[in-house]
Computed example of a mutant assay.
Amino acid sequence: MPETAETKVVAKAAHRFGVPVWRTAKPDAVLAAAVEVAKQEILSIAKPDQLGSHLAVRSEGERVATHLFECTKDGYRGWQWFAVVTRAPRTKIVTVSEVGLLPTDDSVLAPEWLPWSERVRPEDEAAAAEKPQPADSAVQAAEAEPVLPEGSAPEFDDVEPVEDHAEFDEAQQETDAPKTEGSAN
């Protein structure tokens, strides 16, 4: 049957945007019902206003499922919170094994990292070489360290000499003295 505009609309309506379509088995009924358990564990790493509605549950295998929730955290448009839940055979106690954030196809992601040697292009190097170098300026002079002639010392007009070091020496000896058993130090 050829695809028409009507069949495209119906197909899009059946698939919720941002929720991936998986080709795995139906999730375990106990795990699929554990939405509140998954939500509480996500709230251990997220603020309540950052957790949106439950989007889907996905079977990962026998007695393992992943719950997906909308992420409403600023700067994470298109991301989804997830909680992986599991249970032991013949028990209905659900355990959360992992929580976190997952990007979707609509997520804002950082660009792929490139080594510096690949980021600098020949035209970038040419533009840097053409840039005029500033002549000696007041800024460069202020940044340069002063050079003193050999045998001379810097002058400190506003520094007053300290005459009595006794208090400092006593305090230093107390902190440097080894501590012995029964001493209050």
Rank of each mutant, 00 (worst) to 15 (best):
P146L: 13
L102A: 02
A153H: 10
C71V: 07
R87G: 01
R121H: 12
V64A: 03
C71H: 02
V64D: 00
D124P: 09
K131N: 12
A142Q: 14
A128D: 11
D106N: 06
D105S: 07
G78Q: 05
D74G: 08
S117K: 12
P146T: 09
D136E: 13
E145K: 11
A126I: 10
A142M: 13
A144K: 15
E150H: 12
A127N: 15
V139G: 14
P134N: 10
G78Y: 04
D105W: 03
V99Y: 00
Y76C: 05
E60H: 00
E123K: 14
W113T: 09
A126K: 15
V108G: 07
G61S: 04
T66F: 00
D74I: 08
V159H: 06
E143N: 12
K92C: 02
G61L: 03
S107H: 03
A135M: 09
A88D: 10
Q80D: 02
P122S: 08
D158Q: 06
P149F: 10
L68R: 01
A142L: 15
P103F: 01
A128P: 05
R121F: 10
A65H: 04
G78D: 06
A144N: 13
A127H: 08
D158M: 06
S137H: 10
V159N: 04
V159K: 07
F156P: 01
R77S: 14
L148K: 05
A128K: 15
E123C: 12
